[in-house]
Simulated assay, not measured.
Amino acid sequence: MAVNFGNEIGADGLLAAASVLERPADEFVNDTMIEELWAIKAFEHAEIYFNLLSSVDPKILRLTKLDDQLYKHFRETFPDLSVASVTEEKLKSAEAKELWRSFCEIYKDCVEDYNYATLIRLDSSKEYSEANSMIVPRVQFLAIELARNREGHNDLIRSNFKPKKLQSRS
């Protein structure tokens, strides 16, 4: 992914952004700077997560303290959802949104940043790119990636991709 937001803002700006982004969402109007800061945070998370997938066996990754519960609940709620490849329609149709909203709200008080905008890969066999990414709430990302890790859909990432040096954000 060739996006490089961090060099324009610098370390001080990113630290300030982190404190601003912790404020309640209803305090913000459609501010393009806030949207850019959310995008930066989502992109940094994606880089780190993909490097983890490129470095270790995904089956041993622990994403939260609630991995087992989250995965079990996900498969009970979405037993037929193929996580190898997802589409915007599968995740964001009116029907899907209603199911996902109920699913995510259960984790409001027990998964940190449960509703943060997080990038997910549409096709689990490929890396993050503009064409292969979509923004979802963090809990939705966690549920799908736990399924991908446990069901073997991320197994070939280590063979096909090497960890990348993270870009300096200062």
Rank of each mutant, 00 (worst) to 15 (best):
V20A: 15
A96M: 07
F43G: 03
T64K: 03
E95L: 08
Y71G: 02
T77P: 04
K65I: 10
V56E: 05
T87I: 00
L122N: 03
I144T: 02
K97H: 07
T87E: 10
E127H: 08
V83A: 11
P137M: 08
H45V: 11
V29N: 09
A94G: 03
K41T: 12
K59E: 09
V29C: 07
L21C: 07
E76G: 00
F28W: 05
F78G: 00
V29P: 00
T87S: 15
D123E: 11
S93Y: 07
A16M: 12
F43S: 08
L146A: 10
Q140C: 14
T87K: 00
E47L: 10
C110R: 05
Y128Q: 01
V111T: 06
D109S: 11
C110M: 05
I60E: 14
R150M: 02
F78A: 01
G13A: 08
I106Y: 04
E98N: 10
Y107R: 03
L146N: 09
S124T: 04
S133I: 11
W38E: 15
G152Q: 05
Y114C: 08
V139H: 01
Y128I: 09
E35G: 01
P79W: 12
I60A: 10
S125E: 07
F141Y: 13
G152P: 02
I120D: 06
E95A: 15
D67M: 11
T32Y: 12
T64A: 05
Y71M: 04
F43E: 08
V139R: 00
I144F: 06
D31M: 03
A96H: 06
S102P: 00
E36Y: 11
L91P: 05
A84G: 10
F50K: 02
L61E: 04
N149Q: 06
L37R: 07
L99R: 12
A131N: 13
E130F: 15
K108D: 08
E105A: 03
V20H: 07
K72L: 07
E95Y: 05
S129L: 10
D26A: 03
L21D: 01
V29M: 04
E27C: 09
L37M: 15
G152H: 05
E105N: 12
P24N: 10
D123F: 08
N115D: 11
H45C: 12
A84M: 11
P137D: 13
I135D: 07
L63C: 07
L53V: 10
Y114Q: 04
